[in-house]
Amino acid sequence: MTEKILSEKNLVVRHSLLELIEHWAIAISGLLLLFTGIFELPVAKRYYIITVPGLGWSADFITSLYIHYAAALVFTAVGIFHLAYHGFRGEKGMIPQTGDLAASVKVMKSLFGFGQEPPMHKYLPEQRWAYVGMAFIILMLIISGLIKTYKNIYAPDMSLAIVLTATWIHNIFFVLFFLAFLAHMAAIALRPNWPMVRGIFTGKVRLDYARHRHALWIADIKKRKTSNH
């Protein structure tokens, strides 16, 4: 387990290097997929996106497809890796737990100045729900995207029912992915969440913040440390 309290530096290790790599690989490839996915719609010429310096290529659907495929390779491989690796290790920190819904409501209310936040684990209850939602969206995008890729290369005359299903799942979940991304950004914009932002860049968050907001997590780390000795 990477999680470690660094009292002298007033820090606590929240994410391992592997987790940081996974997050940023998914984030960067996901954004590339989002933009090149938009460019697969006939919008670049119509909305003069091609006139934006550096985006002259955006109306060329084949160029966008190259980038879309390259990003999809990373997105799919890392997405499946994440699911398999952490799943096999039995890591359940981000899976919603009993009582998360009620706790989420409490946290949300507290963000707007109503009541106190309940003591929390490493991840906030609504963060766990958001994770499952995002994971489901990503999984649907991967499955439908793989079907569409197979069709592009090997089976242009694939059953129309399958093609239409995959296409519409891909389009609908593309919109949901975009909304989920906006929600993710909105969560970061909330002041109480700011201390967590450094965690996703450096892997560490402030210890005083963690003690105050993630008391259950810090207690957990201490308990594990004691039992290891």
Partner: peptide, 24 residues
């Protein structure tokens, strides 16, 4: 020209699983 890259995308789930297995 995009076909070779597309074929690699189709193999991506296997790559992900193999990497997870090896690292695990």
């Amino acid at each position: 020209g995009t076909d070779p890259l597309g074929k690699t995308v189709l193999s991506a789930p296997v790559l992900g699983l193999a990497a997870a297995g090896a690292l695990g």
